[in-house]
Design a protein around this nucleic acid. Structure first.
Lengths: 412, 412
DNA sequence: GGCAAATAATTCAATCGCTGAACAAATAGC
DNA sequence: GCTATTTGTTCAGCGATTGAATTATTTGCC
């Protein structure tokens, strides 16, 4: 919705080709069936001649391939469908969380081509050791990817905490991390990434942000503006506005867990009072349901809670209802503020959605000014717990799609 | 922060010139002193030859003019400074509010060249009559602008309510408007606008949104992301993210007045409970201070309140402190969610800022997770009550600056 | 079976706008 | 008055898009 359509910098002669490469490749990526050159010409407004020239570049650079002709109705020479290559550049997605490490590889088309999860309680582990374990998994992933003809061109790491511009994890309370210089620690290991202009070798970002990105690009395509809430020990939100993740001035947006829902209520570790996290965080729900706190890893506690709720346990149902109500109060505020029409419950909330959604919707319909005219959808995440790592890897390949010139210049 | 740098459509041959026209004109607009062609070349990365050609087009189209040479230190041929033209295209800003009508004209450079305010209680007035009065004022403004060599190329109307995509005012409670088809009503009057490709003849938008835009482009330039809060009878917010107004999925973002600050508190006309508006709305403050409600027009009540506070009236001070605290709870939530570092108090709040800022800041520092690392600024609006109309007019000329090709094609 | 219609993709001269270097203009300092 | 310096223009060259013509390949009809 910006008024300035112009790219930030100068538009040189060569930018023209760069921009059209990105335009055509983007169309191929977002099409639901393999488009022909003629389809691309009509869709983009370019001439068929130009599209052919651009596609030739993309084919030469192995970013797209030709597929079997799509079935067509009328007469005429059959089209050759264009699809994103299943070889070539790929993204490495990494996640460090409280009780697991994840590594995955996503190809240009967004397909998950490799995935490893190692369950391990990382709270007592030194950050450098945790990252070393992650690198070990990533090395195996790289080798596996290479066997499929995939080259890792960038990595993104999801962490449950606040990350600054330099990639330093300023604070990850549930992990016990504080000012961990992730890029420096990872630089001590041999590189797994083949550098490409325009693609950063490593991005470190908040887990909720990357999970929202994963949800944004999951198939089938959903809305381009939504709020994605990751309910873990803390509660984080990824805000997607018009297909772009909103990170805030310093990249610390989405701290929905500290929205005040009872301003004079329970004190919170953030220094405030009555924060949402105190009423809808995983520990709050678990203890309200009468389960022993810290009994088991987080995902086990969640599974147990869902089990109890499914069995009709009154305490569990009440705990979930109360948490959903608190969540609904906060979400209603966010929807009023940002005018979003979709809320996705992810992370630990995904499995609890059947019990959380009703009270959340009730609060929304009671508190949102515009709810009467256009309804708000609340639904569980489609990717669930995988969202962050998949979103991280996807964010890498998406850069290639957005700026293919860098990759093409590399391979010649 | 979007990954796609490419414009939405095709990048044709001619787009190149269009983009560079916008790039150079934008630089001229945002420079703090008249830049030379050489300055523009180094700033944009284009060659001096290209800049000269682009500037020639802009000069021929009367969008820029040459100014006296700026003082320079060293040797060499003196530069000719380039400034936005003080003639040519201009924007018409309109505002309908509860107790006044405003019309203003803003030129390319953002200068307010004409301004009319008519104080009139519009609550008992039929919307069509109100708009007819506005058109009358606008006609006089057009004639005045023409005498200064200004051509109105578009209009933007600010209303205190929810507006849909078609420009229909769905609901303006304090004005008593409901489903008012503003574009259709205005179309019955003779047109005042000279149509230009790329510039809509009429945009209708929320008053808080346009006030935020006015603040964004006020001089001296402030931050590019902030929250602008218009405290009138209702409380609206304009959210500016990375220099762009965020409107939400349907254009109804910013309803900060209905953020819950006491979820089980006073019932609100929106159907919810404990909304901010019930604690920090103008009526709430005025009655808490012991002033007779609906005693006087809103701005008079605000002025009286400020007067009492300045005199040390205990009731007024307490009312303002309580309102500021409620506001702070809501703002803290917004800052946690969006990671903004600047909050601007506008509308009726501007005059009350000395008493509202301290409690707002107190709540922020107590509740915002990241406040310890980077402080949040809370300050009054620089434009005050004029912000909405000026922002409306400014949004028109900003389109010309962002897409000068449309205007140039028009005049040849 | 053969032919016309239809659709896909390529080829090629023309054109548009940027580039880079040379050149002209204008001033300060010596 | 001369040189160094900076600004701005001119011009041949070039890359990328364009639009029309051409080639390629299939369906449908007689």
């Amino acid at each position: 919705m910006s008024l300035t359509h112009a790219p930030a910098g100068a538009v040189r002669q060569g930018s023209l080709r760069e921009l059209n490469l990105a335009l055509v490749l983007g169309r191929i990526a977002s099409a639901d069936r393999p488009p022909s050159r003629a389809d691309l010409a009509t869709a983009t407004g370019l001439t068929r001649a130009t599209v052919s020239a651009v596609v030739e570049d993309l084919l030469a650079g192995r970013l797209v391939g030709e597929s079997d002709p799509a079935p067509r109705s009328g007469a005429g020479r059959p089209a050759r469908g264009l699809v994103l290559a299943d070889q070539g550049p790929a993204g490495l997605g990494l996640e460090v969380n409280v009780d697991y490490l994840t590594v995955c590889v996503v190809d240009l088309a967004g397909q998950v081509r490799h995935r490893t999860v190692r369950r391990v309680d990382l709270r007592p582990v030194d950050p450098a050791d945790a990252l070393a374990q992650l690198v070990e998994l990533a090395g195996a992933a790289r080798d596996d990817a290479a066997r499929h003809g995939l080259t890792l061109v960038g990595a993104a790491l999801a962490v449950p905490g606040l990350v600054d511009d330099a990639g330093v994890v300023r604070l990850a309370p549930n992990l016990g991390w504080h000012d961990v210089p992730v890029p420096a620690l990872l630089a001590e290991h041999p590189p797994l990434i083949e550098q490409v202009p325009g693609v950063p070798a490593l991005v470190v970002d908040n887990e909720a942000n990357l999970a929202a990105l994963g949800e944004l690009h999951s198939r089938p395509p959903g809305p381009s503006s939504f709020l994605h809430i990751s309910g873990e020990v803390g509660i984080g939100a990824g805000i997607v506005l018009d297909g772009a993740l909103f990170r805030g001035v310093r990249g610390w947006s989405g701290e929905i867990g500290h929205l005040p829902v009872h301003p004079e209520g329970r004190p919170c570790r953030c220094g405030g009072q009555g924060c949402l996290e105190q009423y809808a965080g995983q520990e709050a729900i678990v203890s309200a349901a009468g389960l022993a706190r810290a009994e088991l890893p987080a995902d086990t506690a969640t599974a147990r809670l869902a089990e109890l709720a499914r069995a009709g346990d009154a305490d569990a149902l009440r705990a979930l209802h109360d948490a959903g109500t608190a969540l609904g109060v906060a979400v209603a505020g966010v929807v009023n503020l940002l005018d979003l029409d979709t809320v996705v419950l992810g992370g630990g909330y995904a499995a609890l959605a059947p019990w959380l959604c009703p009270p959340v919707l009730a609060e929304i319909s009671g508190r949102v000014l515009t709810a009467a005219w256009s309804p708000v959808t609340v639904r569980p995440s489609t990717l669930g717990a995988e969202a962050a790592a998949v979103g991280a890897a996807g964010s890498v390949v998406r850069r290639i799609v957005a700026q293919p010139a860098g990759w093409l210049a590399r391979t010649g």
